[in-house]
Design a protein around this nucleic acid. Structure first.
Lengths: 334, 334
DNA sequence: CTGAAAGCGCTAACAC
DNA sequence: GTGTTAGCGCTTTCAG
C-alpha cells in the first residue's frame, strides 16, 4: 500500500519550477542558485517531503541498503553482529535488510536472490550450515554485487572476510581445561563441513598435543544439525558420558546450551564434576548451573568491521583487487 | 547495485511479442492464448526470469512485504514472534522487513515512516517503551496503511491487536508464589506507561488481595529503562533485599535476567531462599541458578496470528470496521 | 487475442 | 541557472 505523499512534481507545480530543478535543489547541486535552493528546501520541509526510495532505486539501480543473511536471529551471536552492522550502517545512511536462513541452503539462495533483485547495494553473509555450493553467490558477485562474508566463510571466494581466530579460541579454552586439571577432554561439535568447526577441532587437537595428551577420536562427537535437534545432542552426550570425560569443549552456541541441558538432565550428580567450556555469546551464562567457561566472539565488533568493508566496496570508484581477511580474537570468560 | 537481469522487454524481443503480452502471459491472464502462455513461460523459465520487484512496487504502489517493528531482536520473545510472522508470511508470498527501535521513540517514528515510503503493504508493531505519542501511526493508518499491534499496544487506536493476558499471567504466577509459601512478595517492573506492565501490576495486586495479603507499595520497584540499564536494576534489587522478600515477581524478560544476576551478585547466600518468578521467553531458563519460575508468552503463535490479521486487512476488498483484540494465555513453567 | 502507449516518481543528459 | 525529455521495468487502459 503506497501512502499518498507529495512528489517532486507537486513541489514543482506549487513553486512554478520544473521537477528537475527541484530535484537538483534538494540534492544541493552547484548549478542551482542559492535562492532557488532555499525556496525549494523550505517548501519541501514545510510539506514534509520525502523522496520516494522506490522510484529512486529503480532509476539509480541501487537502494542505499545492505542485505544481511544469518542463520537465526534468535541467537545472541547473530543479533549482536546485526547491532554492530546497524551501528555503522545508519551513520553512513544505509538501511539494512535482515534475513534468516534457518540453516537451509535453499532458503539462503532464494533470499539472497530476492535481495539482489531488490537492488541491495551490498551483501553481508554468514553461510548456512547446509551450504556447500556457493556458485550462485559467485555469479552475483561477478555481476557486480559487493559481498563480505563474516563468521562462516567459504575458503574459495576472493573477497573481504571477517572471522574470529577459531583455532586460537579453541586452543586457549582447551588449554584452560587442561590447566584446570582435566586430561580426558571431550569435544562436541557440529557438521565437519563448516569452516569454523574444522578450525575449532584443530585448535582442540593442538592444545592436547602441546600438553602431551593423546587425541582420542572417540571423544569427538559430531552433531550434524549443529544443535537444532535436541535428540542428536542428547545421544552425543549419552555416549560421551560413558567415556567419563573430565572436561568437555563444545564448538558452538546452540550446542553449548543444548549440551548443558542434556548433561543436567542425564547426570545431574556428575554435572558439577565435569568442567564444561564452549563457544557462546549468551548474555546470561553467569546464571548457568553447572557453570560454564565461555568462549565469546566479538560479535558487535565483527558487524562493525564487516559493514565498514562492505561500504568501502560499495563506494569504491574502481574494482577492488586487494582483499582482506580480518581475524578477531575471542575472549574466554570463566 | 542492480544486477543485470532479463526484463520483460528481453523476453518480448526474443519471442517477437510485445511486453504487455509477455506480462499478461506470465500473470496467467485469461486474454492470452494457452499457446502463447506456454511459450512465454517456458522461455522465462529457461532464462530464469524474475520480475523486478522495484519496478513492480513503483507501478502497483505496493511491495508484497510486511514491516515489523520490535524493540530488540536480541530478545527471545521478539525473535520468536518474528519466526511466527515469517512462518505465515512466506507461505502467503509476503516478504518481511525487520526493524529495531532499541526502545527509542524517535527511531521508531523514523523507521516506520521509512518503511511506509518503501510501500510496505502492512505494519506489525510492538511499541517502543518510550512511545507515548502515536499520532504519526494514526496518520499513516488513516492514509490507508494497515496496522496490527502486538504485545505492546496502545489503548486509543482502533485496529486489530494481539496480546497476552498479562493480568492473568501475573495473577497466576503471583498466586503460585503465594502457594509455594511466600507472603512478602516484591514486584520489579518497568516503566508505568507500558500497557502490559500496568496490567501485570494489576494481576499481582489482585492475587495478593485474593489471598488477603496487604499490598505494600514499597515492595514495587520501577525500572524506567526496563532492564536496559544494569545499574538501575542493581539499585532496585538492593533496596528490595532490605525488605526481606520471600518471593519476587519480575515483569519482563530483560528485568528477569538482570535481576537474577543482581541478586546472585549481591546476596549469593540468600539467592536460593527467595522464590523468583518472572516473565521471560528465554530458551535456557532450565539452566539458571537460582532457579526461576517463568511466565512464558506464546510468542510464535502471537506472530502467526498478527500476520494472519494483517494479511486479512491488506487483502480486504472493503475497509474493515470490526476489529478484534486477540488475547492469548501465558504459560507458567517451574 | 495482441500491441501501442501512458505513467508510477525519480535522475540526468542535453538543450537553451 | 533552469527546463525539456527520456527512461529505469513494470502494469494496464485502450485500440485494433
Amino acid at each position: 500500500m503506497r501512502i499518498e505523499t507529495a512528489t517532486l512534481k507537486d513541489i514543482a507545480k506549487a513553486l512554478g519550477l520544473s521537477t528537475s530543478t527541484v530535484s537538483r535543489a534538494l540534492r544541493d547541486r552547484y548549478e542551482i542558485s542559492e535562492e532557488t535552493k532555499k525556496l525549494v528546501v523550505a517548501y519541501a520541509d514545510k510539506i514534509n517531503y520525502r523522496a520516494n526510495p522506490i522510484a529512486r532505486s529503480l532509476k539509480e539501480r541501487r537502494s542505499y541498503s545492505i542485505g544481511i543473511i544469518v542463520s537465526e536471529i534468535a541467537n545472541n551471536f547473530f543479533s549482536q553482529v546485526i547491532n554492530g552492522i546497524e551501528s555503522i550502517a545508519y551513520n553512513r545512511d544505509y538501511h539494512v535488510i535482515i534475513s534468516q536462513t534457518h540453516e537451509s541452503h535453499k532458503q539462503e539462495k532464494l533470499t539472497v536472490e530476492h535481495l539482489a533483485s531488490r537492488s541491495i547495494d551490498g551483501l553481508l553473509i554468514s553461510l548456512s550450515a547446509e551450504t556447500q555450493d556457493i556458485r550462485y553467490l559467485k555469479d552475483l558477485y561477478e555481476k557486480g554485487l559487493p559481498i563480505v562474508f563474516f563468521d562462516r566463510v567459504p575458503d574459495d571466494f576472493e573477497t573481504h572476510k571477517v572471522v574470529v581466530n577459531n583455532f586460537k579460541g579453541a586452543f586457549d579454552v582447551t588449554e584452560h581445561l587442561i590447566q584446570s586439571g582435566s586430561r580426558v577432554i571431550a569435544h562436541l561439535t557440529a557438521s565437519e563441513t563448516l569452516s569454523n568447526t574444522k578450525e575449532r577441532l584443530e585448535g582442540y587437537k593442538a592444545a592436547l598435543a602441546k600438553h602431551h595428551i593423546e587425541f582420542n577420536p572417540d571423544l569427538v562427537k559430531y552433531c550434524q544439525h549443529g544443535g537444532m535437534v535436541a535428540e542428536e545432542m542428547d545421544d552425543a552426550v549419552k555416549e560421551l558420558l560413558l567415556l567419563k570425560p573430565e572436561g568437555i569443549f563444545i564448538a558452538n552456541d546452540r550446542l553449548t546450551t543444548g549440551c548443558l541441558t542434556a548433561i543436567k538432565n542425564r547426570a545431574p550428580e556428575s554435572a558439577h564434576q565435569i568442567a564444561i567450556a564452549g563457544f557462546t555469546n549468551s548474555n546470561v551464562v553467569n546464571l548457568f548451573s553447572p557453570t560454564l567457561t565461555s568462549v565469546r566472539q566479538p560479535a558487535f565488533e565483527m558487524g562493525k568491521i564487516a559493514t565498514e568493508l562492505i561500504i568501502q566496496m560499495i563506494e569504491a570508484k574502481r574494482p577492488i583487487t586487494e582483499f582482506q581477511t580480518r581475524v578477531l580474537d575471542t575472549e574466554i570468560i570463566s
